[in-house]
Design a protein around this nucleic acid. Sequence first.
DNA 1: TTGTAAGCGTTATCAG
DNA 2: CTGATAACGCTTACAA
Lengths: 346, 346
Amino acid sequence: MIQKSSTINDVARLAGVSKRTVSRVINGSLSVGDSTRVRVEKIIAELNYSPNTQARGLASSRSYLLGLIYDNPDALYLDDVQRGVLEICSTLGYELVVHPCRYRSETLVQDCLNFINRSKLDGVIVLPPVSELESLALALKNAGRPYVRLTSVSIDEPQHIVVSDDRAAAAEMARYFAQLGHQDIAFISGPQRYKSSTERMEGFKLGLSAYGITLQTERIIEGNNTYETGIECARNLLSQTPLPTAIFANNDQMAAGVLKVAHQMGIAIPDQLSVAGFDDNLLASRVIPALTTIRRPVRQMAQLATTKMIMVIEQNDKSAQQVAAKVAPTLVVRESTAQAAVAVSS
Amino acid sequence: MIQKSSTINDVARLAGVSKRTVSRVINGSLSVGDSTRVRVEKIIAELNYSPNTQARGLASSRSYLLGLIYDNPDALYLDDVQRGVLEICSTLGYELVVHPCRYRSETLVQDCLNFINRSKLDGVIVLPPVSELESLALALKNAGRPYVRLTSVSIDEPQHIVVSDDRAAAAEMARYFAQLGHQDIAFISGPQRYKSSTERMEGFKLGLSAYGITLQTERIIEGNNTYETGIECARNLLSQTPLPTAIFANNDQMAAGVLKVAHQMGIAIPDQLSVAGFDDNLLASRVIPALTTIRRPVRQMAQLATTKMIMVIEQNDKSAQQVAAKVAPTLVVRESTAQAAVAVSS
DNA sequence: TTGTAAGCGTTATCAG
DNA sequence: CTGATAACGCTTACAA
């Protein structure tokens, strides 16, 4: 049942040209006569011919394979990323090979390098938090492999990065909180080893300070971006007197933890306490009350990253540098936030 | 900076043998002298040599690439599947290429075929609901491509399938409901075009009937597996008089919708109403109250599927048929279910 | 604008 | 058990 598919030789023979010419047509070379091109293309269509990627790769030392390196237990956006990448690359003849890994693994860099070399990948896209590892970026650079990192800070050259401006987004959340009249605000941060965490915290503080509001030390607690640590941090925060009037969590998972604890303690949200998260993951809109949060244009980021990568792969560094490198997350207001409950003045 | 990696020729030269012999060693051929083998392996290690997959593929018409075809799984599920597949296949030298697609696309079958042919994939794993499409399975069979489908019914030969026994799981949920004393039970089904939906519904009915309980017609409503349709169905169900004492939804998303509506209507869960879902996705444990649900061993299914596939690829159909093909989901009891509120007798 | 010849790094064939 | 030698299907020189 497996029928051998036609090769470049078949096309050449039927079109009455040399395989070299067929090759030119396939690769869009300009130096092919119009009539010749048309004839060849007709045969290609008739035969439903498509070039053998392996042979092509072997001859040209390219694989037409892109890699995706990630480690994200909360990879709710994994599907989004994969679709975004493929929307761009599949029309250009590339496929996507995935490589889930462990951020904390000691052999991470070597693992990734092996992954790349085994499959002779033409380039890789790296998702946070792995994308923040300088050791990996350096190794990739030294290996001469095109790569693009998705992060929340510009920690690399423009052709190597697509950043989501988490800082600005967090500042916007601060503004939103301030305008609702909140003054006594708490923050559950993510692990400080992640740039995304520090960016969000800084942005939030900055945004607040524009309104003369300061985060008190005891109102900042570091979580681990998990639901469970969200619960722990919320227990701490909600046992303080007086209660803060609002809590901003570094991500939706932890914000959901806050909701849980508030519910257990009989604290009404948003009447007594406003809560917001970050990511707009599956959870955010399903939880009760639905979470006010920040949405990152994940798909778009993936598309930009892929566009950049392919430009670099195809030797267009300059164009790659000109593709937009920064993307703006947006505030999504739902049910978990409201006017500050208690007037501060007395 | 890119250093050309060593080839089989380098190994052959340094080991003082022909490349054919090196090839034999690489492929674990038995007909190689022990001393020769040791010598070659030593050189391979020294050079950190690894064979070029493309050349290998070209010569042997294999790609060492596995494909994953899916449409719209719950996010966490996707990561689980990908890791499960790779845990098995990466140690055997295979990589995973992903292909998100659209179940409803008219060109789905052709898309998948093109995907496979372009990259000369050695085999594909297909996730539900795409895995339920007979047209695709048939095309794969005709194309002579090894494939394995993840489904909830045995709709194919053992070497081509890994099934999660959703029917039995739903029956277990029924038993659990019955034992809690529920008699007036409602069911929000998934789209009846999906086997997973019909299996779950049948299983639930069957389980119930063992306790002499019947689902009333007006207590069965079909949703679309989305949160939004969950809400619609819940509105319908919860406007009926009397209220059912329990609702089982075809998945967690819809169960979350029920929670939402119940909350809006002031119906206490689980005191007045028990609610359960299916999947144990991220949502289930985070929602308030946490959902009683069914967990499928997704990772294990992916591993089994991969094991089968590689056996088929490597011509071991018999072994492939002997790998376990059925997997049992388990009941996870959380906070959303309780004893039936009202005694039926009067 | 087109064609010829020589690989790319493996495995398969067929000897020895 | 081992080794020449020819594929595999394509691209890259280099000519014409």
